[in-house]
């Protein structure tokens, strides 16, 4: 159960929100000029990183406002929230604790209880 800090309402329980997938995926300005492949990427392909992830949430059972968040998907820690239209914080700002793309964080992993030696 995440605790999400809605930029409009403050900290609320996760059950008040709905996730909207990857943030900052702009709809092509001229869809007709997109190739089938480019268009299919826009419609179907979204980033799915383990680690730092820019995503959208909507405060469904609250102010109904959409906003963006940066979350570490390997631990679920929410690192930052910001309003739609605000520039995304640079990824360098956040520490990625993963040593490899599919690695595990030092703590917070669901995979082990004892630190691997």
């Amino acid at each position: 159960m995440l605790l999400i800090n809605c930029p409009y309402c403050g900290e609320r329980d996760q059950i008040e929100f709905t996730n909207g997938g990857e943030a900052h995926v702009a709809r092509p300005k001229n869809p007709d000029q997109e190739s089938d492949r480019e268009w299919s990427e826009y419609v179907f392909v979204r980033a799915n990183p383990k680690g730092i992830y820019y995503e959208r949430w909507v405060h469904t059972h609250g102010c109904k406002k959409w906003f963006n968040a940066v979350r570490n998907t390997s631990t679920d820690e929410i690192l930052e929230v910001y309003k739609i239209g605000d520039p995304p914080p640079p990824i360098k700002k956040f520490k990625n604790t993963l040593k490899s793309p599919s690695g595990e964080p030092d703590v917070g992993s669901g995979n082990f209880a004892v630190k691997k030696t």
Partner: peptide, 17 residues
């Protein structure tokens, strides 16, 4: 999701991180 470590004297796992 805290991490454990083994304590050789108490012969048990205990909280670490």
């Amino acid at each position: 999701k805290g991490l454990l470590k083994w304590d050789k004297d108490l012969l048990t796992f205990k909280p670490d991180k």
